[in-house]
Write a protein that binds this DNA or RNA. Structure first.
Lengths: 205, 205
DNA sequence: CAAATAAAATGAACAACGTTCAAAATTCAA
DNA sequence: TTGAATTTTGAACGTTGTTCATTTTATTTG
């Protein structure tokens, strides 16, 4: 029995080794600059070995995208202790933005890059569980807000999607370097300022 | 004298020819699938010729990105007849979203793809005039809203950036296929619904 | 008109990429 | 020890963006 188990563990370990190397490389050099050859070289394996553990590059990017959602979820875990749904909603946005700006390549992989979705669609069971779980986390918080009497006359899903779009838009514009060169008085602080502005709007609901 | 002028005109025409072919190709097949060889073949010129008129692929993408801003601006032109700034703000968002979803590859080039910005940064005068002009158009409308007494206690730039982020976030999530697979009751309508929801929020200001 | 000059277009060649797969190396069970 | 199963290898393929010496075309000059 022990042999098969050890083999399975070793397989898992090499898979993880590949992912760790991939993540390190493209956090340092960016997604586009990271090649399969780079990854193989970093872990002292041949190119072919990488393809034994991952069908293609998209599969690697999808696996890292999943890790990203794991990271985000762990950041969200502190929200469990926030009783008031409105306060939780506000904190959720802050955490989301902070995560996005501190893990730019990961964020891009999770919400912008098409590769992970392309990989998913090529699967027999193309379910985006990570996105589903994250949106549900937001949505259920918004649901509590509605139950508590906030946002009277608003619908759950569109409202939730609106919140998501707002914070995503900020992260996305910042990461894709669209905030520079727009003549802002303080480009580096604009995201925080804009989110603060949004929270001010929320005070009326 | 006539010769130099004609030469200049011909140069301009070939440049346009390249851009039209490039735009057609990647509107049909996507940005990543469009290669320099494809473009050259489409206009019956050699690969080398393309490089006479554009330094590299990024230069082509930047030129198309600029064309995209021209298109957006022409869509915005109807806003001149909207006197009430709040109504103009609402209409601006609708036009922005409609443009984004009906010209997905163009939109991606304008606000997500890094290539145009990479090209710009390699320039001696790295000014993002297109983005600047567009943000100014939004910003001045918001300024009029503030002057008219709306959004009391809010600051211009962060508030404007917030609006931009909201509509951009919607377009971005939709285009990068993140709205599918999140278990929405009506994925294809979520953007419109969410923007309507946002307009409802705005009624309080 | 012919020769010399300038300008424009060419496409073979290069390096690097993702990907494949027959062969080699290694590990396991008998 | 032997033979089968598994794992690893890296050369090779087709594409990509890019370059540049060469050829072709257009213009000017004598």
């Amino acid at each position: 029995m022990g042999v098969a188990e050890r083999k399975a563990r070793e397989k898992e370990e090499l898979r993880d080794l590949i992912l760790r190397a991939a993540r390190k490389l493209f956090t340092e050099n960016g997604i586009e600059q990271t090649t399969i050859r780079n990854i193989a070289e970093a872990i002292d394996y041949s190119v072919g070995t990488v393809y034994v553990y991952f069908r293609n590059k998209d599969a690697i990017l999808h696996a890292l995208h999943s890790q990203g959602f794991g990271m985000l979820a762990s950041h969200f875990s502190v929200l469990a202790s926030v009783a008031d749904p409105m306060e939780r909603l506000r904190a959720m946005g802050r955490i989301y933005i902070k995560f996005g700006l501190e893990n730019r390549d990961m964020y891009e992989l999770m919400f912008s890059t098409k590769a992970p979705m392309t990989f998913l669609c090529a699967t027999d069971q193309p379910e985006w569980d990570e996105g589903k779980a994250t949106f549900t986390a937001l949505s259920s918080t918004v649901a509590e807000c509605l139950e508590a009497g906030h946002f009277a006359g608003h619908s759950l899903q569109p409202l939730s999607f609106m919140f998501w779009s707002l914070v995503h838009g900020m992260c996305s514009l910042e990461i894709s370097q669209r905030t520079q060169g727009v003549n802002l008085t303080d480009p580096s602080a604009i995201v925080d300022q804009a989110y603060t502005e949004f929270l001010k709007l929320l005070d009326h609901f």
